[in-house]
């Protein structure tokens, strides 16, 4: 079943952000939501993930226990290594033997195998974000939400990370909802593309 948002009405500080919006995210694809800053892109992800419950409307096809989230900042725990940070979200979700295998596999895909025992303060900004991407793909979910994961990362690294995400997505066939304000990123990574504009916002679907 695809993920559907139906008749979404969302107000923030008395201002109407969405007034009866519908969206569909197809299973196994990367759907990109783009639009200017402050338009409500992250709000959509927060509604899908359950972080934001203050809205009217319906969200269908989302199992709250099977969601991964790559935030704008890596949100790693400083006293845990890259490996342990991923293990932190996998404890009791996977069998003990499977945990190590899963983590090693994702770390290999994002080319961080050598850095698995490094602590966040020993990693660069880009590496930390790659750990958070690896964490999202290691998690046994079916939906990955990504909120501008490349902000503050240089072009060369960004391309490499986008390729990592595509590679992991092709392997695992997970559904990804990717938020960005960068149109180039949206075109490169997305299978489907929604553009949010105006206030209250309207959503246009762009055909690839």
């Amino acid at each position: 079943m695809d993920i559907k948002i139906k008749n979404l009405i969302k107000k923030y500080n008395g201002q109407v952000i969405f007034n009866g919006v519908d969206m569909v995210f197809k299973r196994g694809l990367i759907s990109v939501i783009s639009g200017p800053s402050g338009i409500g892109k992250t709000t959509i992800l927060n509604i899908l993930s359950g972080i934001d419950n203050d809205y009217e409307g319906t969200v269908l096809g989302v199992d709250k226990e099977k969601i991964s989230y790559v935030f704008q900042e890596p949100r790693l725990l400083d006293h845990l290594t890259a490996y342990e940070n991923i293990k932190f979200v996998l404890n009791k979700k996977l069998d003990f033997d499977k945990i190590e295998e899963t983590i090693n596999k994702v770390l290999e895909t994002v080319e961080l195998t050598e850095y698995k025992s490094f602590y966040p303060n020993e990693l660069s900004g880009g590496m930390k974000q790659r750990v958070s991407i690896a964490r999202a793909f290691a998690y046994p979910g079916d939906l990955i939400l990504m909120d501008e994961p490349f902000s503050g990362i240089d072009e060369k690294l960004k391309m490499q990370m986008m390729r990592d995400i595509k590679k992991l997505q092709k392997k695992q066939m997970k559904t990804i909802v990717f938020v960005t304000h960068n149109m180039e990123e949206a075109r490169f990574i997305g299978d489907e593309h929604y553009i949010i504009e105006g206030r209250p916002s309207i959503i246009r679907k762009q055909v690839k």
Partner: peptide
């Protein structure tokens, strides 16, 4: 918030 999304106990 991150830990809650990932359903950490």
């Amino acid at each position: 918030e991150m830990a809650r999304v990932y359903q950490v106990e």
